[in-house]
Design a protein around this nucleic acid. Sequence first.
DNA 1: GTGAAAGCGCTAACAT
DNA 2: ATGTTAGCGCTTTCAC
Lengths: 340, 340
Amino acid sequence: MKHKKTKITLLEVANHAGVSKTTASVALSGSDYVSEETRNKVIASAMELGYVYNRAAASLRLNSSSTVGLIIPDLNNSFYTALLTGVNKELNKFKKTILLGSTFESLEVQERLISSMLEHRVCGIILFAVLGSSDELIKKIKKIGIPVVLVNRSYPGCDYIGIDDMLAGQLATEHLIKKGHNRIAYLGGDSYLTSWYKRREGYESILKKFRIEVDESLIIESSPTQEAGYNSVEDLFKLEKMPTAIFCFNDVISIGAMMKLEEKGIIPGQDISIVGVDDIPEASIIKPKLTTVSSFPFLRGIQAANILNSRIKGEGGEPQTIIIEPQLIVRDSCRWRYEK
Amino acid sequence: MKHKKTKITLLEVANHAGVSKTTASVALSGSDYVSEETRNKVIASAMELGYVYNRAAASLRLNSSSTVGLIIPDLNNSFYTALLTGVNKELNKFKKTILLGSTFESLEVQERLISSMLEHRVCGIILFAVLGSSDELIKKIKKIGIPVVLVNRSYPGCDYIGIDDMLAGQLATEHLIKKGHNRIAYLGGDSYLTSWYKRREGYESILKKFRIEVDESLIIESSPTQEAGYNSVEDLFKLEKMPTAIFCFNDVISIGAMMKLEEKGIIPGQDISIVGVDDIPEASIIKPKLTTVSSFPFLRGIQAANILNSRIKGEGGEPQTIIIEPQLIVRDSCRWRYEK
DNA sequence: GTGAAAGCGCTAACAT
DNA sequence: ATGTTAGCGCTTTCAC
């Protein structure tokens, strides 16, 4: 265990097997330009010598690696973890490894992360861009020539796996209205987010459909985190008249909001109705169980990985835009409300 | 955007700046063996040409990369995500990137993952070994000569960041006993896990201390997942006499158990008391809020990253064993129980 | 079916 | 302070 064993190279394997480097390489790569017999010989030698394939060398030669960069804003939001799980699961099948980066909502970190991945010669990037990302960033990656799959925003020339955010807003709002609410807040999230804007459009369109006036004071922005959700409820209390229902930008905000409401003695699902978006695992753990609009993070992760993989293999065609239809999941956080 | 731009290499940057390749390399690496003036010239050229450092080439040359392998069993367990967050946060500081792998509790996947990371020439590995891992595995990595930090088990020659599992078991059990319980189950987790065994030791030691007989039928094994926790509660119902309290192997099991209990009309924190281990974020979201013994996953992630980093830098010394003292976090899932 | 040889982009002696 | 040079281990024509 003391002496540094000098690393075994392909050449040594070849020598040991009594073939050339080329043959050894070909044999190990599984191509069938070698006889079965030779291949077995080579494999046996590799095993015996404890050969470890050097991907750095291969990457250099090939000018591309077998790693995929995945960049998400926040490891503590289960939405992203679910996405990550999907990506991971699918990429495994293609024998690709994930180079992971969490930006923690910082533009600067995101910039660094992307540079680093480019330096690593990742063969593709799945990017959940942080709030306020410039187009420059994406342009920079595209210029290098590696495929990019976007999850939360579209950009010309990139594949995009999104949900129909407007519909998400509509589903949530309509559910609330049908439960008898007409004073519905839209809580949390940032107007810089395309998704925020679209969900708001959905929200307003339904209000209009039911001839309910849009009340700007019921639209409250925040960052898209649980903590922000918790804090932003304060703004609701400042209103002369509390809403009877809240459509939250996403589930983590819903959870934060529910906690604050409860602290203030307002019981969610009883005194006030709540709908979130995403359907993260916590949504069915919290009490009352959260009614939410699923945005299928796991599924999107799988799809993102698949599209990226086909791009990496050079399968061309126009950039794809996949818009998944969100789905209302009714649980226990909304109650009937009769006219006061 | 059409023509493939041929990649800029260090040589081209050097030429453009009117210096040699070496000088360019040294200048960019931030060493101060070049004049400030030269460095600036080189940096300017690199920027202008859009140079992207090729880590594959550097890795090959250096025979080591700037990536660290992190292997965890389950991305869907927040315990691991918290650990990951800590590792990620700390590694960022050292400009290292995470090559992530989730084994999903499969030995075979773990094997593949480790091989892959070795091929990538990661400069170190943080390993949360899956249940049933053989020593061979770790031996294999050590033979390559890269440092390994273990999180859930110790192994000669490796650093280890664990918690005092026996104490965790004691803390939980004692809390329950002091609340008046004397029929306490130990639910979930697998006896193959060192941590399971140690927590059981703690559990039994406290029972003995209070002269309560150990009842084997109250010790129920399962895999360490939420779903398993949910299912294993069934076994409790089969007993002639239900326990009045449950010490769960970890928080996800507690959560699963609580869900099942509730479905059966037994209200946790009221009809039955529950204590978990880990203190994952969900513990304070679920209702009743879960009383648990914190195992400080985030902190352990940070420490693991730190130790690994110092090993990578070649800082020697004996393998460290850091045992963090778990801490009882009292919330709402345990109630006083008076003698019937 | 197999081998010889070139070269990917970088770093680190060593020389100047 | 800067340049010359020799590989790191692999894949891939192109011969045979």
